[in-house]
Design a protein around this nucleic acid. Structure first.
Length: 571
RNA sequence: CGAGGUGUAGCGCAGUUUGGUAGCGCGCUUGGUUCGGGACCAAGAGGUCGUGGGUUCAAAUCCCGUCACCUCGACCA
């Protein structure tokens, strides 16, 4: 490729709205252009990176007997009614009508399509297990896209669906996919990634993992145990909850607390008592039911984990507005609340056995002191609905946990029979009885992988692609292209490199050296080869790797072979 | 969806307070001189000032509406 013909503007200045490194650099290097919020056009170099990542994914999926298919982007409503998701999914799914007024959706995931595709073709346990996958565009109408390709509305995704006769078979295959994912992320040059246990959300199913790139710009919070290797998404993370019960239980009393509402205000008003000697109430409404208020009590030093709460009450929640309810915001306590209509109470396990606690008095300007969760109230069950905090003890080994941010780059789910059952897929087993296959599903976002690698490997000069996914292997930097000899030798080298299977971006422009070097660094091409009047005179080319791992002069006559080796070694 | 911010040439920005010929830097075109980490000179091209309405002799600038984008938060299969 001649850089003089490459479409995509490289700029010296960063776009003012790009906050994170990968976003800013990919725009500066001319890799992509914004079309609409969360919707991008990719230029040739970015598309080439995407294709290389896709091919690596393809190889690894094929290696575990995946069958590449292609499901439609546009699907009729009926298919999604079968699974129930036409109504259960919110505004993230785009719905529209065709010219006849028939309802359609844009695919944001393809469980329905996979089951619809497979259910008639597969009739016998003999045909199981199998895995079908595709690499295709998804559309999710995110409330808020951000960070360039990190979080978008339209994106290319590899999504795979496996079908099994029983749970054991699913689990065995699940761990083969797990291993394939580790190979994929390694091969595309991702360095600091881990797999964490995760919330399967509304996908259904039990066991799931998310592959996470550890980075500060990540949107997910991960809970990690450096000691025993426990790794979990905050959504499902657990820890040991310390018991701060005092030996002597003091008599309960009501105290005046003026306008102290938040825990910090209350503890300060009462003479800097520790936050863990208070219980706070956090209120939610059930989604679609503004009548019912879910009041959660957690220890004052902890926060409610909404993902855990949703599992406990088996319903979706939204933060509650308390106007018009009988609850006194800032002074809510657990005494007498069970008498209120339309209130669901959930107690966190951090309060089990706690005593001498401060709780709200359910009236303005008052709290209750020395409340005992043993003595003063009868609670049937305490649930785990609190967020793990940094330094909390690991539930497995007791050592302190650490929190870290991560970007989700892939996920694997054991789905169970949610879709096969609702959509009526069945096969005959050995005994001739009809059984419902068990599913797994497995996703990798290609664009997010690109952004993640850019984020992890770039420096202040620009991007820095791993050889395996670089848009081109070599940046052929010809200095003084107005010199006929340079032009001739460089043209020949360009042809020779290509004949040797090396992908070359040829900087044939007659601009100053610094201009070329900067573009090379900015675009992140791994190998820079400089040919100039000076180098030709010495019979050499100057070779330098973007990652600093190699820098030398090679003979002009034999450099093609040596470069081929350097590149091969690094793929 | 809540809060804040920004829309002026391909990119980065000034001009808006106090209404009066549409500006700067980079990039682009042509010619010339240069050439090892973003060279220089000269001459050019390129803008419905996001958009609709209003006020005014006159609007990028003032008023009302609206749209888009960005940031933080909420949401997120």
């Amino acid at each position: 490729m001649y850089i003089s013909k490459l479409v995509g503007e490289r700029t010296k200045t960063s776009p003012s709205d790009a906050i994170i490194k990968s976003h800013a650099l990919m725009i500066r290097a001319g890799y992509m252009k914004l079309v609409s919020n969360g919707i991008w056009s990719l230029a040739m170099p970015a598309q080439r990176i995407s294709q290389k990542i896709e091919n690596i994914i393809r190889e690894e999926m094929n290696a575990i007997e995946g069958q590449e298919c292609l499901f439609p982007v546009v699907m009729p409503r009926e298919m999604w009614d079968e699974s129930g998701r036409y109504s259960s999914i919110g505004d993230e799914m785009v719905r529209f009508k065709d010219r006849n007024g028939r309802d359609f959706v844009l695919g944001m995931t393809h469980e329905e399509a996979a089951v619809q595709f497979a259910r008639d073709a597969v009739n016998s346990y003999n045909q199981l297990p199998f895995m079908i996958y595709q690499i295709q565009t998804k559309f999710r109408d995110e409330g808020r896209a951000r960070g360039g390709l990190i979080r978008v509305r339209e994106f290319k995704m590899k999504d795979a669906y496996s079908f099994h006769i029983n749970q054991e078979d699913l689990e065995a295959y699940y761990y083969r996919v797990y291993a394939a994912y580790e190979r994929i992320f390694k091969r595309i040059g991702m360095k600091n990634f881990i797999a964490v246990t995760s919330d399967s959300g509304m996908m259904g199913g039990k066991i799931s993992h998310e592959f996470m790139l550890l980075t500060d710009v990540g949107e997910d919070t991960l809970v990690l145990c450096p000691e025993c290797g426990y790794k979990s998404n905050m959504e499902v993370a657990t820890s040991v909850v310390e018991n701060y019960a005092d030996e002597i239980e003091l008599p309960m009393e009501e105290v005046y607390t003026a306008d102290a509402k938040e825990i910090a205000e209350v503890t300060k008003y009462l003479g800097d008592i520790p936050a863990y000697k208070t219980a706070k109430a956090v209120c939610y409404n059930i989604k679609g039911d503004s009548e019912t208020t879910v009041v959660c009590f957690v220890r004052g030093d902890l926060e409610v984990n909404e993902a855990k709460l949703k599992k406990v009450i088996m319903k979706d929640v939204v933060p509650a507005g308390l106007e018009g309810s009988a609850l006194v915001a800032g002074n809510i306590g657990c005494l007498g609340l069970d008498k209120l209509p339309n209130v669901v109470l959930v107690y966190d396990k951090s309060l089990k056995g706690a005593n001498n606690m401060v709780i709200g008095a359910n009236k303005e300007e008052y709290h209750i002191k020395n409340f005992s969760f043993n003595r003063d109230i009868k609670i049937d069950e305490f649930y785990d609905i609190s967020k793990v905090v940094a330094g909390a003890r690991c539930a497995h080994c007791g050592k302190p946990l650490v929190l870290q941010n991560g970007i989700e780059i892939g996920n694997i789910f054991q789905l169970g029979t949610k879709y096969t059952e609702s959509m009526g897929m069945a096969v005959l087993n050995k005994e001739g009885k009809s059984v419902t296959p068990i599913m797994g599903c497995y996703g990798i976002g290609v664009g997010r992988a690109i952004a993640s690698i850019a984020e992890e490997r770039s420096d202040d000069k620009g991007l820095n692609w791993p050889m395996a996914i670089a848009p081109w292997h070599v940046y052929l930097c010809a200095l003084r292209t107005d010199d006929a000899i340079v032009r001739e030798k460089a043209d020949k080298l360009y042809a020779d490199l290509q004949s040797a299977g090396i992908e070359v971006l040829y900087d044939d422009r007659n601009v100053s050296p610094g201009f070329k070097f900067n573009d090379c660094d900015l675009m992140g091409i791994p190998v820079r080869v400089v040919i100039s009047p000076r180098s030709i005179q010495n019979g050499i080319v100057e070779v330098q790797l973007r990652d600093g791992s190699f820098k030398d002069n090679l003979s002009l006559d034999t450099c093609v072979e040596e470069l081929a080796k350097i590149i091969k070694d690094r793929i």
